[in-house]
Simulated assay, not measured.
Amino acid sequence: MKKVLFVFGLVIVVVGIVLLWGFFGPATSFRDKVYYLEIPTGSTYGQVLEKVSKDNVVKYPSLFDFLAKRLNYPDKIKAGRYAIHHNTNLLNIIRKLRNGAQEPVNLVINKLRTKEDFAGMAGRKFESDSIRFLRFLNSNDSLLPYGLDSNTVLCGVLPDTYTFFWNTSPQIVMNKILENYKSFWTSERKDKATEMGLTPVQVSTLASIVDEETNNRNEKGNIASVYLNRLKKGMRLGADPTVKFALRDFSLKRIYHKHLLVESPYNTYRVTGLPPGPICTPQKQTIDAVLNAPSTNYLFFVAKPGFTGAHAFAADYQEHLKLAREYQQFLDSLAKNPKAEETGH
């Protein structure tokens, strides 16, 4: 009898050790350093358990189920994106899920050219898909409090890093981004825009054109002055990047006369004044470059030969033609078929 009790007790001890090791020892089944477990809004415990098992998150789903139920996790399912690190034990995994300790999502916005670009990027980052984000971007009622509409909404999407949770709704995501836009437009910046006879949206739209013209910070002010001078004189802006936007072909390296035929309110070779909205997300520093543009008599500019990123500026059209021919000759010397004629700014 004593031998039976000893064996029985030994079995209990072994089982206890196994269970303790199962609960507190390394429990993950994946090889990567981290696995991101995404639990959609409205998920049931059964769906979570199925995902944990199907995706090989843990070695022993039955032990996960056993411990989860004793920690009341089935009644405390929280949607989100959770970082499960390699060799984490079951107790810590379940506690993280039960407490809703999500991994933050950084939405890094640099240059985006269209609403579809933004919606696609956001749809890959969040639980909501791109269609839901695009729906918000096209909702004039949602954008009205920010002084924006479906054409100008990208004026409010300033390049920056924004932190959210994976299951944050499109409305909350956009509200945070647009509040940043409102904060950026201080009274001082608004006053400068007013003195120029422009609204914040118009300044941002012009800044988007400047951003597409150059990455050279030192020249943004001068390029802005060219377009400001043209606006004052009632001249067409004649900005090549607006033609690319109108064509939705951002791969174009040279703009030819055939491209200028496109019928679009964004084609500033055919329409006078600013386009109805930005052609990319304007950088803060470029908006400031527009607001603080130097007073010049420049009306034209063209890239200098050599792909240095520098531009030559001119107040006289004949001087501009001379500079433009020099640049065209440089391009033609590199091109295989230099027959087509390129336009100047």
Rank of each mutant, 00 (worst) to 15 (best):
I12A: 13
L19D: 04
W21H: 11
P26E: 09
R31L: 13
R31Y: 00
E38S: 10
V48L: 15
K59I: 08
F64A: 08
A68W: 02
R70H: 12
D75T: 06
I77V: 14
H86Q: 15
N92T: 11
N99S: 10
G100Q: 06
A101N: 15
P104E: 09
I109R: 01
N110Q: 13
T114Q: 07
G120F: 02
S128N: 08
R132C: 01
R132T: 03
R132P: 07
N138I: 03
S139N: 15
N140A: 06
N140Y: 00
G147C: 10
S150I: 03
T152A: 01
L158M: 12
D160F: 09
T161P: 11
F164R: 13
N180E: 08
S183F: 02
E188N: 13
A193T: 05
A193I: 10
A193Y: 08
T194D: 12
M196V: 03
T205E: 03
S208R: 06
I209S: 00
D211E: 12
N215K: 15
G221W: 01
A224E: 04
N229F: 04
K232A: 13
F245P: 08
A246R: 05
R248N: 14
S251N: 14
L252S: 04
R254P: 10
K258H: 13
K258I: 07
N267E: 09
T268V: 05
V271M: 06
P276I: 03
P278R: 07
C280S: 14
K284Y: 00
I287Y: 00
V290Q: 09
L291P: 10
A293Y: 03
P294K: 09
A303R: 11
F307C: 14
A315Q: 08
A315N: 02
Y327L: 07
Y327E: 05
Q329T: 03
F330V: 06
L334I: 13
K339M: 09
K339I: 10
E341T: 12
E342V: 11
